[in-house]
Design a protein around this nucleic acid. Structure first.
Lengths: 198, 198
DNA sequence: CGGGTACTGACACGATCGTGTCAGTAGCGT
DNA sequence: ACGCTACTGACACGATCGTGTCAGTACCCG
């Protein structure tokens, strides 16, 4: 019987971590079991035993990627009082623009796009989940008065869009200075817009 | 000898169009020749003859998708004098948010992400190309005074980011009213920011 | 009519895929 | 010592993949 993801053994998490590192550099789209198993010093037999089948492994990898994302998001929540969307966006962008996170974010983009095209299977709901995750955490960063208004929803949607769009640009061009300047310009716009009483 | 894309025969463009429609609904990631050929009433033999190999077909499909995008962009250029980034963004968003374009945009997202993960092969440069295409057309929409400044570059980068990010949200959630409201809010921000002498 | 160009069908080849089967081995609690 | 659980190796199966080979058919130009 395959181990469930709710009851991961030591060996399972160990191999998952190795497979995750492999996926970061090779992508998920044309990943296949035999090359993966060989690269991480295992075998297809073991992967099948631990994850049930390829879809199980894929789901575990996607969850693993999502864990890394959620860790960042939790840091944003750890403020005693809401820091505002602009400050939150600033912090998030610093994380998104870091060179070290480039492979993770490429993987994220791949999973996101794939879940749009193929709404069934192991990718199911990935894009939707991340959008919701981020919108929720941005909501937690908003002042209480703004958070529950329609205006507040639109406001964080816009903030998320800027971050995501800037990320796409950065991943394609690697032009960090230009894209970061654009994000900063938006932050200035948001802050002045707020001051003007939008 | 395979036909080049520079010298397409009638049959080639006909089958390419059929394959393109197939790709719009089935995605490119796990497309394979035999199911595709059967779906469009052809055979793998013919596809190989006309496009050389699978990569050739894939390249032709990506180019076909890009054609549709460039057609929109050319419409934006057809103004006698620059219409400004805000007006351009408004027009582009109307196009992006149209229900009919959803499959094309899903395909676009898939190709974009794939070209990030796998920089070689037929996907090579797709993401980079579209970023450049869009930035160039946005540049043409800017007033001449703004266009060549560093500030102008940052400004259109930001505009593109909002549109791309909003598109990602829309594709994942389908919540057109919320996302469109966010885009409109940004348009208002841009216009008021400009009025204030940014 | 004759020949070249454009296209198509039928089939086979080797590679690779996910997965199943059968047999182990190592360690640990009793 | 024993059995139970956790894990692993070797190998085979059928399916599907991209592609190559050999043969056509249809049609236009001379």
């Amino acid at each position: 019987m395959p181990r469930s993801t709710a009851n991961p053994s030591a060996r399972q998490t160990e191999l998952l971590e190795a497979a995750y590192q492999y996926a970061l550099t090779h992508g998920l789209a044309d990943m296949s079991l035999r090359p993966l198993a060989e690269a991480i010093g295992s075998s297809t037999r073991v992967l099948m035993f631990l994850f049930g089948n390829k879809d199980g492994l894929l789901r575990a990898l996607l969850q693993r990627a999502r864990t890394e994302e959620l860790a960042l998001l939790d840091n944003l929540r750890r403020h005693e009082q809401p820091i505002g969307l602009a400050a939150a966006a600033e912090g998030v962008w610093a994380w998104l623009a870091a060179d070290d996170h480039r492979p993770l974010l490429r993987l994220w983009a791949e999973a996101y796009a794939r879940s749009l095209v193929e709404p069934d299977g192991p990718w199911a709901g990935f894009a939707r989940s991340t959008v919701d995750d981020w919108l929720n955490v941005l909501a937690d960063c908003q002042p209480r008065a703004e958070r529950d208004t329609e205006e507040g929803t639109v406001h964080r949607t816009l903030t998320l869009a800027v971050l995501r769009g800037a990320l796409l640009d950065l991943l394609a061009t690697g032009d960090e200075s230009r894209v970061t300047a654009a994000v900063n310009q938006q932050l200035a716009l948001l802050r002045s817009g707020k001051r003007a009483g939008d």
